[in-house]
Amino acid sequence: EVHFESHGEEQAMRVVKMLKKRNLTVEVKVENNKWIITAK
């Protein structure tokens, strides 16, 4: 499981795309203006 924190939507979306290319399940949450990305 991979956790990634991002402060910007643009950066977060880039990471999500990259993770999805690896056929991982990606969950995105926004907490306290931080984008929290979890990949399994």
Rank of each mutant, 00 (worst) to 15 (best):
E1A: 11
E1V: 13
V2F: 15
V2Q: 07
V2L: 14
V2H: 14
V2K: 06
V2P: 02
H3W: 12
H3V: 14
F4A: 02
F4S: 03
F4H: 04
F4I: 10
F4Q: 03
F4R: 04
E5A: 07
E5I: 15
E5K: 06
E5Q: 06
S6A: 15
S6C: 15
S6I: 15
S6G: 09
S6P: 04
H7M: 12
H7Y: 14
G8M: 13
G8S: 15
G8H: 14
E9G: 07
E9S: 07
E10K: 12
E10D: 09
E10W: 13
E10G: 06
E10F: 08
E10H: 08
E10S: 10
Q11K: 06
Q11M: 11
Q11Y: 10
Q11H: 12
Q11F: 11
Q11L: 13
A12T: 05
M13Q: 06
M13P: 01
M13I: 07
R14S: 05
R14V: 08
R14A: 09
R14K: 08
V15Q: 02
V16G: 01
V16N: 02
K17T: 09
K17V: 14
K17P: 01
K17F: 14
K17A: 14
K17D: 10
K17C: 15
K17M: 13
M18K: 05
M18S: 05
M18L: 10
L19F: 05
L19S: 01
L19Y: 03
L19W: 05
L19M: 04
K20G: 05
K20I: 11
K20E: 09
K20S: 06
K20F: 12
K20H: 04
K21Q: 09
K21I: 09
K21Y: 09
K21W: 12
R22M: 14
R22L: 15
N23F: 15
N23C: 15
N23S: 07
N23V: 05
L24Q: 02
L24H: 04
L24N: 02
L24Y: 15
T25A: 09
T25S: 10
T25K: 11
V26K: 00
V26L: 04
V26Q: 00
E27P: 00
E27L: 10
E27Y: 12
E27Q: 09
E27D: 08
E27H: 11
V28R: 00
V28H: 01
K29V: 08
K29Y: 10
K29C: 13
K29T: 09
V30Y: 14
V30M: 10
V30C: 11
V30P: 01
V30L: 09
E31S: 06
E31M: 10
E31C: 10
E31Q: 09
N32P: 03
N32R: 05
N32H: 07
N32Y: 06
N32A: 07
N32G: 13
N33I: 03
N33V: 03
N33P: 01
N33T: 04
K34T: 09
K34H: 07
K34Q: 05
K34C: 12
W35H: 01
W35A: 00
W35Q: 01
I36T: 04
I36W: 04
I37P: 01
I37T: 01
I37Y: 00
I37A: 00
T38S: 07
T38M: 07
A39R: 02
A39E: 01
K40H: 11
K40T: 11
K40P: 03
